[in-house]
């Protein structure tokens, strides 16, 4: 949108004002996410930049809040940092345990959501699928229905069926919440899928199984992986269902953060936040690379 040569002075002025406005909106979007990174290295227990930090005095910065993530909840946090200390961290540190739980729940719910979701997306993208619209609406609805309603319903249902306070219950619930993302991304990949490729494989003597694994799968794989990452992030960031159906000792990272924010917010939360921001940057990069790969595979030029 270069400025045309026939633009009047007023239009020229607006052109730059408009860009400035957009820059401010981009700042509004990104600043809150980036601000936690320097603040997490604050040497003082404050949530703002101290004089020392602003003058880049090294004593104004420290990694004490990251250290706290390891030592909080440990048996002997002040012992010498040898192998026994690290094993204490692995066994007892509250944040480490929360991370373990989050990863376990996230991994299995992603696996479940991706497998079931991809299968369903393959069915839904076939033109002969009956009741396509209704079924699609049902399968996407966990994303639309407010999480508090889902959590309340699951609380009643799990209490009645004995799934409350179990890992299986949380994994199933998180898989349900991740499924819409898998379906959306995989269906989007299948929309541009050239069906003649399957027919070509069949005409060359491949049976449906071979066709699927050799032709269809490699082409839709980027979409499947993106969907899986979405499902994982959904589970990794989910707190309300965990609050409603999990047992007290089933802490996850978001639940631990939730408690931290509600009770006594400390800069340790900011160090967790920083780690999570870095994780999301990594995930975003992966998804973006996958999208480009998918476009290249399907012969759509990125322009």
């Amino acid at each position: 949108m270069a400025l045309p040569t026939y633009a009047s002075p007023l239009e020229r002025l607006w052109y730059y004002v408009y860009r400035a406005i957009c820059a401010l909106i981009f700042l509004f979007l990104i600043a809150p996410i980036l601000i936690v990174i320097p603040l997490s290295f604050n040497a003082e227990p404050y949530f703002t930049f101290t004089e020392k930090m602003l003058s880049f005095d090294p004593t104004g910065y420290s990694t004490r809040w990251y250290d706290l993530l390891l030592t909080f909840g440990m048996g002997k946090p002040d012992a010498v940092r040898d192998a026994a200390w690290w094993s204490d961290v692995w066994q007892n540190a509250a944040w480490v345990n929360a991370a373990k739980n989050s990863v376990i729940i996230g991994f299995f719910s992603t696996l479940l959501a991706t497998f079931l979701g991809t299968l369903a997306a393959l069915g839904l993208s076939r033109p002969e699928m009956p009741f396509r619209r209704v079924i699609m609406a049902i399968l996407i609805s966990p994303m639309i229905v407010p999480i508090i309603i889902t959590a309340t319903g699951l609380f009643f249902f799990y209490s009645a069926t004995g799934l409350a306070n179990t890992y299986l219950g949380i994994i199933m619930a998180h898989a349900t919440l991740g499924i819409p993302f898998v379906i959306i991304t995989v269906t989007a990949t299948l929309v541009g899928f050239d069906k003649t490729l399957n027919q070509a494989a069949a005409s060359l003597g491949a049976n449906p199984t071979t066709t699927f694994f050799k032709i269809t799968m490699p082409l839709i794989l980027p979409g499947v992986i993106s969907g899986a990452l979405f499902a994982f992030v959904t589970s990794f960031d989910e707190v309300v269902v965990v609050l409603f159906v999990a047992a007290y000792d089933q802490q996850t990272i978001p639940r631990q953060m939730w408690n931290g924010i509600r009770e006594q917010i400390s800069p340790a939360i900011l160090s967790v936040a920083t780690i999570l921001v870095i994780v999301s940057i990594a995930l975003l990069t992966t998804v973006e690379l996958l999208r480009r790969r998918s476009e290249r595979l399907r012969g759509i030029s990125p322009g």
Partner: peptide, 10 residues
């Protein structure tokens, strides 16, 4: 892509 809780904390 960033956690909801992270953004709220910020």
């Amino acid at each position: 892509w960033t956690s909801l809780l992270v953004r709220t904390t910020s």
